[in-house]
Write a protein that binds this DNA or RNA. Structure first.
Lengths: 341, 341
DNA sequence: TTTAGCACTTAATCTTTCACAGTGCTAAAT
DNA sequence: ATTTAGCACTGTGAAAGATTAAGTGCTAAA
């Protein structure tokens, strides 16, 4: 891959990103000061290398999946966020009242808005949270609410109907035992410590210990499973992209975006590096062969999360990366200012 | 409108609902034991009356908005829920573990699934709830969580950063005052009683009373505004309907279903009768001229809500009504069994 | 290596044709 | 007074061809 060939591929990818139309040899002559025939020769080589494709024998070229991959890896220039993009996001961070997690959501809404891609915020509050206390609020003789609170201020609650043979006081007594034993325990370890350490203790002190135990066990489990928030913005925005100018394709994607485990697939960022923006092109996304997902982990105040943008493979990589970088940077600086974590 | 004409309109509507294709005169001959010419004569009259329409001069007839209206008002027969439909919903109510509000959501998911329409559950927990207690949980010297709990077991929480000149104990003291004064107050009246009754009291007893007051005021306000849940099922299901076999129409609806205030428009059920299933056809829906919304209010355990189904105007009115009736009935019986409310 | 030239390919668009499903109207039949 | 048969007419939709535009690959010369 000599320099001209690299530049040619770069140009093809970028023109295609901009126009969504296959790129022909003529269109590139002027840029490279040579004839269309020369370009064609080079294109033939790029095609042999698998970086570009033809839709049919006489069509212009379109980047292939590995073409995009090569582009983001070696050709894409670090793009600075544009002034107007920055301006729109700045407004959000200017407002210090906004809680950080709301600020993230708002940012992604705006990104979705200005780019016509779909964006996702997945927040997982449970990680890095330690149990602060579990309290019992009695509604009446037969109903109680268990409220679980962590040291990071995340709260989750669950209501229970008590069987008639269980007294509210026993529940409260149990909660006191748990508080004494488990304060400070990482929230996702609480369940197992309940089983191994707490259960034997309350077995001795509480009459109907099985039922009582289950109430608390359920409440903690609920915490871990419920305490994640999901925000999808602009589900319909992505349909504005010209690749979805087709009923079948449109329905297919609409269904996928609706699918319950869509979030899961989009945000399997567990293995992502904490500090890196990752790009998953087409099949790499494991969500849909025709989209690209760009995502970044974040970590503020004991809330782990992922922000992600979903667009066509022909998405504006440079712009999205610059936008996500900006958001991330702003979050970092706010985090420091708040002085927590 | 003599009987034959009524039956004719009924048949046209029902055939069109089933086939989504304009209904011609020939297709109805056998059903009415007369020639197509006779049917045509009658059709011309129905068209003059505004109940049916033609797409073009030589097409079959399609019900008009007022045709559908007339149909649901006078012609539609009370349909009994079909066995297979019932079976699918029964599974949900068989599971007594499920909380009622979850059961509703599940039901609507299933309805969306089996009918290919979109469904919505809007729950408003705040109505009919009375304040049980507000508790303060201190995370550290500068952060507290206010937990508001109602007698129906609805809990909402909000975290606050304390300014350095405010002591946690003052917050706790305030919470005790509030609890003493306001227990049992309907949750949506709490804000105003805070202003008129509580504020003067804490003004005397608490130093930085303005800031402290605002914390609680905000927490209560949050309760009222946050304590509504929205579930939309099968946003993409409705696209399977043949009327959305067109990119522009599909995008239009996708955008509307995405729109933030879509829920609001769909569920403006305030003026609906508590016990009646209401049908809003086309423009009547105030959401979109090309859809019908069928909805029903529900009211269980201090949770007001609305369930709604959104489909094309050509939706299966009888079936949806029977499904919603069934769900409502089951909710009622569960409500009695639980013995609350 | 590059380029001009040319034959060839395909998609896309437009036009024409044609059958079909349906209508409205008239005049005869019941 | 209704109902019906018959017929001319109309818009749709699918199929078939014609035409154009964009772009390619290859060859041979520069």
């Amino acid at each position: 891959m000599d320099e001209r060939r690299n530049n040619l591929l770069k140009e093809i990818v970028e023109v295609y990103i901009k126009t969504a139309k296959p790129v022909g040899s003529k269109a590139l002559c002027s840029k490279f000061n040579c004839s269309s025939a020369t370009i064609r020769n080079e294109m033939a080589i790029l095609e042999d290398l698998g970086y570009i494709e033809k839709n049919h024998v006489s069509s212009g070229r379109v980047p292939s999946e590995s073409g995009y991959r090569y582009y983001v890896e070696y050709l894409m220039e670090a793009e600075k966020i544009t002034g107007s993009d920055m301006l729109k996001l700045q407004k959000i961070f200017a407002n210090n009242e906004l809680e950080l997690s709301d600020a993230i959501t708002k940012c992604m809404e705006i990104i979705s808005d200005i780019t016509n891609y779909t964006s996702v915020v997945l927040g997982k509050s449970s990680a890095d949270n330690n149990l602060l206390q579990v309290s019992i609020i009695a509604l009446n003789d037969s109903q109680v609410v268990a409220v679980v609170c962590t040291d990071k201020g995340n709260v989750e609650n669950k209501m229970f109907n008590l069987p008639s043979n269980i007294n509210v006081n026993e529940i409260i007594k149990t909660s006191e035992i748990i508080n004494k034993m488990l304060v400070g325990t990482p929230i996702n370890e609480v369940s197992s410590r309940m089983e191994t350490e707490v259960k034997p203790v309350i077995k001795r002190q509480i009459r109907q210990y099985e039922t009582v135990y289950n109430i608390f066990y359920d409440a903690f489990n609920d915490f871990v499973s419920n305490n994640s928030s999901i925000h999808v913005s602009g589900r319909a925005k992505i349909f504005e992209q010209p690749e979805y100018n087709d009923v079948a394709e449109l329905k297919r994607l609409a269904n996928k975006l609706e699918d319950a485990n869509f979030i899961e697939k989009v945000s399997q960022a567990d293995e992502d590096d904490e500090n890196e923006i990752k790009i998953y092109i087409g099949d790499e996304s494991e969500f849909d062969p025709n989209v690209t997902i760009i995502r970044k982990k974040y970590h503020i105040n004991g809330e782990y999360g992922t922000i992600a943008v979903i667009g066509p493979k022909r998405m504006d990589y440079g712009r999205i990366v610059s936008l996500l970088e900006y958001v991330d940077e702003k979050l970092d600086s706010r985090k420091e200012k708040d002085g927590k974590d």
